[in-house]
């Protein structure tokens, strides 16, 4: 089946399981259309592998519209590929040239062990959230939504932090594999709202403690996470979390 006219060389990380070592394997792909998304190019390659009775490449993906946060590839050394502000699934082949060699690797971090090929285990994020990424309010106990006016600027800032899709590109990009941007986005989302202030002290302490326990690195403030974040989560959130953490620890 012909699609387009780009021919590429792919070097893709193959690893059968977390227990076995992996390596980069070279695959040529032909007739790629510039209108294809990067993951559709993977579909074409996988279709070829299946036709040769080989195991297709396993990679995480779901919504393919940049919101579920499932896709996770480091492409030519950059999380989610060469463009900023998008996820891997939103990357299109027109961002590459005919004849390019593209190296694709999984997120790499101690806290994100490889499950298979390009798929990693991001459950560390889940455990961090279970420690405090919520407001303790039971269903049905809420007062009328407009009883609590919230300044628009605060609501917007909270929204901007809440736009995080939990993909882990910040960890993948950070030279220290630090999860600060992710955790800070969660902490900030609540810290900025009066509903979240009630438990702010416990939240930041519990979430930071879990973050440390998961084996993420610390923050060097290089700012790489902010640049590679597909949702543009601001470094400002990290500063806010540091402040929250400091104040929380001064309190008791």
């Amino acid at each position: 089946m012909s699609h387009g006219n780009m021919n590429l060389t792919l070097k893709i990380w193959r690893q059968n399981s977390g227990k076995e070592p992996g390596q980069l394997v070279t695959y040529p792909v032909k007739d790629i259309s510039p209108d294809m998304s990067f993951l559709e190019m993977f579909d074409v390659l996988n279709e070829q592998l299946v036709s040769k009775n080989e195991n297709p490449i396993v990679f995480d993906h779901d919504c393919r519209e940049g919101i579920c946060g499932m896709c996770s590839m480091v492409i030519n050394g950059r999380a989610h590929g060469p463009k900023t502000g998008i996820t891997t699934c939103q990357l299109h082949m027109r961002s590459f040239k005919d004849g390019d060699t593209i190296v694709v690797e999984p997120w790499r971090a101690q806290a994100f062990p490889v499950i298979k090929d390009l798929t990693v285990d991001r459950s560390a994020f889940e455990r961090i959230q279970a420690k405090g990424g919520f407001v303790s309010v039971n269903t049905g106990t809420a007062q009328d939504a407009n009883c609590l006016p919230i300044p628009k600027d605060d609501a917007d800032a909270s929204f901007n932090a809440a736009a995080c899709i939990g993909c882990g590109a910040c960890v993948a990009t950070c030279k220290n594999a630090s999860a600060m941007l992710f955790v800070a986005a969660k902490v900030s989302q609540f810290a900025l709202l009066p509903q979240g202030r009630v438990e702010a002290t416990a939240r930041v302490k519990n979430m930071v403690a879990q973050m440390d326990a998961e084996g993420f690195g610390s923050c060097t403030n290089t700012g790489a996470c902010e640049v590679e974040c597909p949702k543009g989560i601001s470094l400002e959130n990290i500063a806010r979390m540091n402040r929250e953490f400091l104040v929380a620890n001064c309190k008791d």
């Binding site: 919520f134 407001v135 309010v137 269903t139 049905g140 106990t141 809420a142 007062q143 939504a145 609590l148 609501a155 917007d156 909270s158 929204f159 809440a162 989302q189 609540f190 709202l193 509903q195 979240g196």
Partner: peptide
């Protein structure tokens, strides 16, 4: 409920 949960 959503507002109480902190949905912005």
């Amino acid at each position: 409920q959503c507002v109480a949960q902190g949905v912005p």
